[in-house]
Simulated assay, not measured.
Amino acid sequence: MIVDYQTYLGFKANKVEGRYVTNVQIIEFLQNLNLDAQVKIVGHSVQERPIQSIQVGKGPHKILMWSQMHGNESTTTKAVLDLLNFLASENAIAAKIVEKCTLGIIPILNPDGAEVYTRVNANGIDLNRDAQDQSQPESKILREVYESFQPDFCFNLHDQRTIYNVGNTGKPATVSFLAPSHDVERSISKTRNISMQLIAAMNSELQEWIPGQVGRYDDGFNANCVGDTFQMLNTPTVLFEAGHYPEDYQREKTRAYIFYALLAALDSISENTVQTYSQKAYFEIPENQKLFLDIVIKNAKLIDASYTKDIGVLYTEILKEGKIFFEAKIDKVGCLEHNFGHQTYDCMNSDDLETLKKQGLWNLLKP
């Protein structure tokens, strides 16, 4: 382990917590950041919100990372703030990274989407499907930063839903990675191979923290995706997906694991050890499957049914008065023996029935 958990907690940006992270919090954080860094506005969103960038470090290895291009995917943003706090410290690893690397960071690329907690921008466009058209100001800004910064590595930072499990196991995909393809054949270029090696380095670190909870994302090619485009431009690019950790719907645990992944990547880059990891180690990471439900209720009766079934429930995230609430909705009805539940209840068990009542899920069922 590069740093222990107590050390990490000393750098955690505690004023930025939960799922709802907006530009206001980022601006306040940057105003109080005690770090030798260049902070500037690189452009404005559709609704004229500023898009901030931070450049820190003086080394030859240049890494560009951006978060919240989907406005409702904030876990990696929190981890980036934790990383900036770490780099501002006197820790020897932090000093080495600052000396040997130069980081370009956009903490929120889609501030309009972040404000209303939506995936898309204010024009209803998914920025991660706009890499070729560059029809949106946010897409143009990212491409301009990429071209001016000329990174050696790109980190595309996202969240993924609670439905993902690792391989065929009942373990959640708490962190997932992808070395994006650069062509339809999914061939492995020199730069894509480097992406794979870097992911292998991060996975090696994460297996010490969350064994069996790291997945590999589907590598189907889509030239409209930013990661695929940058890989096509011969820049080693890594997709990060922050996922679910048990009972961590605010993703405060997961932010720590993203922090560890980022730190492992930067440590490996600064030490020039990326090439010591194998492509084989990347492919040994199990692929993600979509077998999880937030809640599985066994032997239940729906209100309009006279016989028992299994019910699968997923949460819908709703923004109300500056907070995210989770509303339970039925997603599947029938035999769910091949699914996993982050919570599982059996209506044949009286204690489980009482728990369902306390959680307000009773209205989905008929006693």
Rank of each mutant, 00 (worst) to 15 (best):
G170E: 12
K171D: 10
K171N: 14
P172I: 07
P172A: 13
P172L: 12
A173I: 10
T174S: 15
T174F: 09
S176P: 04
L178T: 06
A179L: 08
A179H: 07
A179V: 03
A179C: 06
P180H: 10
P180A: 05
S181T: 06
H182C: 08
D183C: 12
V184F: 11
R186F: 03
S187M: 05
I188H: 09
S189L: 08
K190F: 08
K190D: 14
T191W: 02
T191L: 04
T191Q: 10
T191I: 09
N193C: 12
I194P: 00
I194K: 09
I194Q: 07
M196R: 10
M196E: 10
M196V: 08
M196D: 09
Q197A: 03
L198P: 00
L198R: 03
I199M: 05
I199C: 00
I199Y: 04
A200Y: 07
A200W: 07
A200N: 10
A201L: 01
A201W: 02
M202K: 07
M202G: 04
N203Y: 04
S204G: 04
E205S: 05
E205G: 06
E205T: 03
E205P: 02
E208Y: 14
I210L: 08
I210V: 13
P211Y: 00
G212T: 12
G212N: 09
V214D: 04
V214Q: 04
V214C: 08
V214L: 04
G215M: 04
R216Q: 01
Y217A: 05
Y217S: 07
Y217M: 05
D218K: 10
D218T: 13
D218C: 08
D219K: 01
D219M: 05
D219V: 01
D219E: 03
G220D: 14
F221W: 01
F221I: 06
N222G: 08
N222R: 11
N222H: 11
A223S: 14
A223Y: 06
N224S: 15
C225W: 00
C225Y: 00
C225M: 14
V226Y: 08
D228Y: 03
D228W: 00
T229R: 13
T229K: 13
F230M: 09
F230G: 02
Q231S: 13
Q231D: 05
M232K: 15
L233G: 04
L233M: 15
N234R: 14
N234I: 09
N234E: 14
N234V: 10
N234D: 15
P236Y: 06
V238Y: 04
V238F: 09
L239N: 00
L239D: 00
F240G: 01
E241G: 10
A242C: 03
G243I: 11
G243C: 07
G243T: 06
H244C: 12
Y245K: 07
P246W: 03
P246D: 12
P246K: 13
P246I: 11
P246G: 07
D248Q: 08
D248P: 02
Y249L: 15
Y249S: 06
R251V: 11
R251G: 13
R251I: 13
K253W: 05
Y257R: 10
Y257A: 08
I258H: 05
I258D: 01
F259K: 06
Y260T: 03
Y260H: 13
A264W: 02
